[in-house]
Design a binder for these strands. Structure first.
Length: 651
RNA sequence: GCCAACGUAGCUCAGUUGGUAGAGCAGCUGAUUCGUAAUCAGCAGGUCAGGGGUUCAAGUCCCCUCGUUGGCUCCA
């Protein structure tokens, strides 16, 4: 027996309708496993939810979940199309991901590339047109194994073998195609009409480097043509904001083959961004009671033996430098921590020194694998907004919160909101972590309580902690959807032991300090790549490589412009004059579309007579005439307060 | 590092079945001196990433190297 529940809107949660299902069930009217709910024309099999014993109240199929079902079904259709065209291919897994889905496939000896997308899409369209009904079957473990073994679907066999005892094994079939799947699925293949194969990539079976590399096909699917087109349009728009694209026009940095991949040459414009950020950090850190230090870029081997980095992270360090007349090797430093620890240990410390906060924009080098490098996002030479806070265990909670507050200050000034916080705790099962569980617990509580007391949202991840302690990472999603850690705040109670860090307490006895590692502004490289995309290159005045551009309407007014330029430069304003032969229109166009200069001053007879300027700000439609003195005051205020750009329309 | 794709002028890209390189923008020169998003004309610019091979002939086909991109793995 089967039943269908019909609702009118995709966006409407199903819980109310599900209540009705439950009522029917209790009345004994529904006993079979083929109950389906109709979701805006798309029929979804709710069997899984109904048969796994969970209460129906917990199943809230919002439109987003409906999309997932659609996409998962699209993955099946793609797999079916692939099997028709490549009968010897072996299927692995095909889950949904944000905005789409993928399927991992072993094509064996056959070469596969995006050239083949067209014929797969054509075959998928055929399958869709046939409106093949999707059927669910429950199999015993033996039946399932026998079926996949016969078809030599080795990955499916592997998957079935790994299913936990007692798990119901289900398959979904459409036409000649059957796949191992939990469901739920749409009722027939005709529901999937709007899809596009996006890219092909390699992926290790089960995500393990030692396993065979399979071919992963990424694709997207949507309920309507409009939504599909919208999505593709959004991707296109996002690509325009890609920091590598904007860099080409704004000339911020350069990577040169002769210098090496992942090694950044900062051009004058990019250097301004670095220096302004650094200035900002110095001011903030001064307010928060940090002391600045400088440390060398290389160090003797022994230091990294002490720190444990040579043991844990040797692979991502540049190889050692052999010295002709010294026995010990030198390394380029991959992090600043040990250097700062040595500053702490440079003289005896007392509780009166605590908390000691040492900060540095520290240059480090990491030998990232070549395939992992990406523009400014992943590089081999990076400059870190680093600092270490040495405090007593009693101070830990407050210091932790203070660091988090510093993060929030930065984000507020830069108008960053597209992030989430991730609290990484240790996994007691794994031996990667030190064994002092009481210590871990105290440190983890300090973090968690700190976050809670500050009312911050965060996600807890077990087993992601550093080997020396728990941490809070702030994850940002960049414009093309890649998620990266941009800031970090880590508790370290191992450093004291390793580096023999001690302070004398009020009772004259020696104690170990707790160390906080923190980098709210991450590294210049990654943070700036993120800022370029965040502002789409149209930086606030305080950060903009070019803060003001003077545009005389004709040659007669160049001299007036020069006078203003000279005056503004005395105020440390980054100002240029466009005195070229272009038309006024062209000059404005250049200033707006290329460097996205936040402030343009149009200078002609009117302005010169009144010692005035006409201000045209980036992103604002109106422009304003004012006295030069008034403009200066306004500009300095903008810079001093690190004012955010204003916009007339959402970009 | 692995899988795949790509690499033509500073940038964005054309370049048919192999017959020895082309446009727009940028640059330079000249004219224009302009009041709010591209003034006109001319000039110059390339060992087609590098190396090897097939061929009478290679930007086009094959191999290797380097680099870039999308993923995977990694990310102190």
């Amino acid at each position: 027996m089967s039943a269908e529940i019909t609702i009118n809107q995709t966006s409407l949660p199903l819980s109310e309708n599900l209540r009705a299902v439950e009522a029917l069930k209790q009345a004994g009217a529904l006993t079979d496993t083929t109950i389906a709910a109709k979701l805006d024309g798309t029929v979804i099999d709710l069997t899984r939810e109904l048969t796994t014993g969970g209460t129906l109240e917990t199943v809230d199929i919002s439109s987003e979940e409906g999309l997932n079902v659609l996409r998962h079904s699209a993955a099946h259709i793609m797999a079916q199309a692939v099997m028709r065209l490549y009968p010897t291919a072996k299927l692995a897994i095909g889950p949904t991901v944000e905005n789409g889905f993928y399927y991992d496939i072993d094509f064996g000896e056959e070469a596969f590339s995006s050239e083949d997308f067209k014929k797969i899409e054509a075959e998928m369209k055929k399958i869709s047109k046939k409106k093949l009904p999707v059927e669910r079957k429950v199999l015993s473990r033996e039946e399932a194994l026998a079926m996949w073994e016969e078809q030599e679907e080795i990955y499916k066999v592997d998957l079935v073998r790994d299913l936990p005892e007692g798990e119901t094994i289900t398959t979904y079939s459409q036409g000649e195609f059957t796949d191992l799947c939990r469901g739920p699925h749409i009722q027939h293949t005709g529901r999937v009409k709007f899809f596009k194969l996006m890219s092909v990539a390699g992926a290790y079976w089960r995500g393990d480097e030692k396993n065979k590399m399979l071919t992963r096909i990424y694709a997207t699917a949507w309920p309507s043509k409009e939504e599909l087109q919208d999505y593709l349009k959004r991707l296109e728009e996002a690509e325009k904001r890609d920091h590598r694209k904007i860099n080409k026009v704004m000339e911020l940095y350069h990577i040169d083959d002769d210098i090496g991949k992942g090694l950044i040459l900062w051009l004058p414009n990019g250097t301004v961004l670095r220096e302004e950020l650094e200035r900002f950090a110095k001011e903030k850190e001064f307010e928060y009671g940090y002391d600045r230090v400088y440390t060398p870029h290389i160090t003797k081997e022994n230091l990294y033996q002490t720190s444990g980095h040579l043991e844990h992270y040797k692979d991502s360090m540049f190889p050692p430098m052999k010295m002709p007349d010294e026995e010990e090797d030198y390394y380029l430093k991959p992090m600043n921590c040990p250097h700062h620890h040595k500053i702490f240990a440079a003289r005896p410390r007392s509780y009166r020194d605590m908390p000691l906060r040492l900060s540095e924009y520290g240059q480090v080098y990491r030998y990232e694998k070549s395939g992992e490098l990406a523009g400014l996002l992943r590089v081999r030479g990076l400059c870190m907004n680093d600092a270490h806070v040495y405090c007593t265990e009693e101070q830990l909670g407050d210091e932790f919160k203070r660091v988090m507050q510093l993060h929030l200050d930065y984000y507020k000034t830069l108008n960053l909101t597209n992030y989430y916080m991730r609290l990484s705790l240790h996994d007691p099962e794994k031996d990667k972590f030190v064994t002092d569980h009481a210590m871990w617990k105290r440190a983890e509580d300090a973090c968690q309580n700190g976050l809670d007391e500050m009312g911050l949202d965060y996600k807890v991840v077990r087993g992601e902690a550093a080997f020396y302690g728990p941490k809070v990472d702030v994850q940002f999603k960049n414009v093309v959807g890649r998620e990266e850690t941009n800031s970090t705040n880590q508790v370290d109670f191992l450093a004291a032991e390793k580096f023999k860090l001690r302070y004398v307490g009020t009772d004259g006895k020696e104690y170990s300090p707790v160390v906080l590692h923190r980098a709210p502004l991450g590294t210049h490289e990654r943070f700036i790549s993120f800022l370029i995309e965040h502002f789409a290159g149209a930086f606030p005045t305080w950060l903009a490589p070019e803060q003001v551009r003077l545009i005389p309407v004709g040659q007669d007014f160049v001299e007036y412009a020069r006078n203003l330029q000279e005056d503004l430069r005395k105020l440390r304003i980054r100002v240029t004059i466009d005195d070229g032969g272009d038309s006024l229109n062209k000059k404005i166009r250049n200033a707006v579309t290329k460097m996205k200069v936040p402030n343009l001053l149009i200078l002609g007879a009117k302005e010169r007579e009144n010692q005035a300027v006409t201000l045209r700000r980036y992103g604002l439609n109106r422009q304003e005439s004012m006295s030069y003195e008034a403009f200066k005051a306004w500009l300095l205020e903008q810079i001093a307060t690190r004012a955010l750009p204003e916009r007339d329309t959402e970009e």
